[in-house]
């Protein structure tokens, strides 16, 4: 297979392309997660985002996540593309596609993938608001990490 299942790219992501990488005769279900840029977070309006990555390591970590999925759901096949650079509201930041013979596994494995991306893949986003900017720290929705990022003052 020559396809790159795990990619960090500065180009717009075609969902179709990512899904096609995991479609196969033995799989009847593909669960796909599409992460888009949201305009409002906690009532604050985002103008656009800038994503930065440690690209080579990020792609390795995406592959590791797929291996972890394979250990838990042996019949799953995973492809993930994450975009970096400037993204506008509603732009697609990440596409995760997981195919399995049966759909329940596809949903579960897909959710596992996005959780792990937010834990171990070296990609960062910077929010641009009308009144400033900020690098965003850990954004796991399942857990709060109030101290999960270096404070602005610590970085001054």
């Amino acid at each position: 297979m020559n396809e790159t299942l795990f990619m960090v790219t500065d180009q717009p992501i075609l969902i179709e392309d990512v899904v096609r990488k995991v479609v196969r005769p033995e799989a009847g279900a593909v669960a796909v997660f599409v992460g888009t840029v949201r305009e409002f977070t906690n009532g604050k309006r985002t103008l656009f985002l800038q994503y930065e990555a440690y690209t080579t390591m990020a792609e390795k970590m995406l592959e590791r996540i797929a291996q972890e999925i394979k250990e838990r759901w042996p019949e799953a096949k995973t492809a993930i593309t994450h975009r970096i650079g400037k993204l506008d509201i509603s732009d697609v930041a990440v596409v995760i596609a997981v195919s399995t013979p049966h759909r329940k596994d596809a949903y579960e494995a897909n959710q596992y993938a996005i959780e792990r991306i937010k834990q171990i893949v070296p990609i960062w986003k910077k929010e641009y608001w009308e009144d400033g900017t900020q690098w965003v720290g850990n954004q796991l929705e399942t857990k709060e990490y109030p101290d999960g990022k270096p404070k602005e003052e610590d970085l001054a």
Binding site: G35, M57, A93, I123, W135
Partner: peptide, 24 residues
Amino acid sequence: EYAQENQRLQPGDVIAFIPPVSGG
């Protein structure tokens, strides 16, 4: 590869400092 704090540097190592990630 993520490393433990007690790992010792080797000549030629590439050491990356990774603030809490926020991809996805």
